[in-house]
Amino acid sequence: MAENIKNSIKVWRAARDMTQEELARRVGVTRQTIIAIEKNRYAPSLELAFRIARVFGESVENVFRYEEGGEAR
């Protein structure tokens, strides 16, 4: 579980009217990976995080944030 890394992909997707399938296709991963990231069950690599942020035209910090207090890994 990616306890400490939270994201707002769902919000940005809704704002851009984009489906999980489309986002997955544009960043080159499977839809299951997007679902896992959205549910904070998987922390993406730095490269994938940048790719996702670039699709939304945002900086990585606007899409992903690090929150203290979760399970340390």
């Binding site: 991963v29 499977t30 990976t33």
Partner: peptide, 10 residues
């Protein structure tokens, strides 16, 4: 179609 990605690899 994408069949594998970094999560599948991990």
């Amino acid at each position: 179609e994408v069949h594998t990605d970094e999560r599948v690899d991990a």
